[in-house]
């Protein structure tokens, strides 16, 4: 591009005057008539708050955690692969390490043995972090809800921002869920991080009952454990 001003502005000031009038002229909302606007005149500029800008950036550049659990991960892989190509939405590079990721898609059934592990992976992700629950199993346990070993939804352990229902959801549904998450991030919304029913605790801190006393010889007091109260699960 040359350094010459654009022709129409060089020849006449009318277009820029029109634009300025349209932006800060009579009868318009006063809130937009800032000193900055007067100084800039017709030149386009954007006013934003820094955190809004950050959220916009965040929403459009999401690093997913490469996290395959069960059936839904096959559809999740389809979502990453050609045809559906979630990269189009700025969310396409799966990260193998939780420390580099900021979105975790939970694609599958959480069972008792995996619960503590998922919590640990979630804890390792840097803030701000977001979770998309993929499939019925992460909502309620899905078809396996009555199983003796199945956690009744990922939300028993970690906060979930977006639930994508289906068994499994189609890739289109997951794309929609991710877009919804981006929308929420841009609007600075996220699920509050609260204490979940199942937390990692030190074994010594568990309330003493029959089960804890029985296991006392096997588990060290400092060991992290997760205690499942199946009877209280919804």
């Amino acid at each position: 591009m040359s350094n010459e001003p654009r022709q129409q502005i060089h020849d006449s000031t009318a277009p820029s005057t029109d634009t300025r009038d349209a932006r800060i002229g009579e009868g318009l909302d006063n809130r937009f008539n800032s000193k900055l606007r007067e100084a800039f005149g017709a030149s386009p500029f954007i006013l934003t708050k820094f955190d809004q800008f950050m959220n916009w950036v965040r929403g459009n550049s999401m690093f997913m955690l490469q996290f395959g659990i069960a059936c839904c991960s096959i559809e999740m892989m389809s979502t990453y692969a050609i045809k559906h190509d979630i990269d189009r939405f700025g969310a396409g590079v799966p990260r193998a390490s939780p420390r580099q990721a900021d979105v975790m898609i939970v694609p599958g059934t959480i069972v008792s043995k995996f619960g503590p592990r998922m919590k640990r992976v979630y804890d390792q992700m840097p803030e701000p972090k977001f979770v998309v629950g993929m499939g019925s199993c992460t909502i309620s346990g899905g078809p396996f809800q009555e199983g003796y070993n199945v956690v009744k939804g990922a939300e028993e352990i970690i906060p979930v921002d977006i639930h994508v229902p289906g068994c499994p959801p189609r890739p289109e549904a997951l794309v929609y869920g991710v877009l919804k998450l981006q929308e929420r991030i841009k609007n600075s919304e996220s699920s509050p991080v609260v204490v979940k029913p199942y937390e990692l605790e030190q074994f010594g801190d568990l309330p003493q009952d029959e089960l804890v006393q029985k296991l006392a010889s096997e588990i060290d007091e400092d060991d992290l454990v997760m205690r499942y109260n199946w009877a209280d699960s919804p």
Partner: peptide, 10 residues
């Protein structure tokens, strides 16, 4: 099935 269970991370 309703009895609680403890699972370790160790």
């Amino acid at each position: 099935q309703t009895k609680p269970q403890v699972v370790t991370l160790s």
